[in-house]
Amino acid sequence: MENFEDSIREVAEKLLRDKKVDLIIGYEQGTLPLRTTPCFVEKLEDVKKLVWNASCDANLSKYVVGKKEKVGVVAKGCDARLIAVCAVENQIPRENVVVIGVPCQGVIDRKKIEAKLEGKEVLEAVVKDEQIKVEGEGFEVVLPKKDFLCDSCHTCRHRNPPIYDVLIGEKLPQSTDKNEFAEVSSLESKSTEERWEHFKEELSTCIRCYACRNVCPLCYCKMCFVDQSMPTWFGKTNDLSDTMIYHIVRAFHVAGRCVDCGACTRACPMAINLRELVKKTEKIMKERYNYEAGLGLEEVPPLGEFKMEDSQEFIK
């Protein structure tokens, strides 16, 4: 990992020095244990701020959308996939971006650690090899990293960036044996009423802060459907019916585009499992179209394409 950090800094420095990019977007140390924060580097002397570790959880492709200048961006597998999706959707000019791809072994879910410690605050954390050493007032615990990764990382099958200009380190072997749809399947086995109740309960604590939307690289609409006010399209209160329609429409809107980077779930202050709703649409895309979003720049997303030989009459 430390080598990765050095390599990222080297690459960033070279890109800036050679004027290949005007800006590098990466990660720097955050203000809290197990946290990093997005870092915007324009000057050579700031390159040393860049870090790489298992807390580099932000999806930086969010910041590439809409940038006018040439940008170099540090991208994990999921981040690079979203750059690809946004490029296919004409939101990121591919030639404007230098993708600094980083093979990723998963990012840590600090909320899982918090839950494990049951009310003890982490004051320091060191991640080394496969272990997380956390310390606080009067305690020190070593936790196996694999048990504290984000749920989306647990089942990730695209750890290597599918598109990149520079690759940091070497590609990781792709894991093919993971059933990423296990949670969806267990939901599918329930009745419609049970599922409805499940989502009602899950979403009942939503505070409509829109962190899930604003953190999502796919939510680039200039005016979101839920913000439309002349006239109003959807209710904005935190009444459960208003909240649910927001989440349902958003799930539909990212269907066939979402790569399950998990940023929405990580961003939610109320710990709502937002991935769950969209994961089902991902499964449908896989089953019906054998399509996974963001694996290349050529493939047109099935829901964005029209074919004359479409078997359904209504579309012709």
């Binding site: 802060c209 953190v215 109003t232 904005k236 209160t237």
Partner: peptide, 25 residues
């Protein structure tokens, strides 16, 4: 403001922020 996502986490969880919008329901 570069890294700010423009979400409402900070203001909604803030004990003093109290701005509101008025709607017709």
């Amino acid at each position: 403001c570069q890294k700010c996502l423009g979400c409402g986490v900070c203001t909604f969880l803030c004990p003093t922020c109290c701005c509101f919008d008025v709607l017709e329901e």
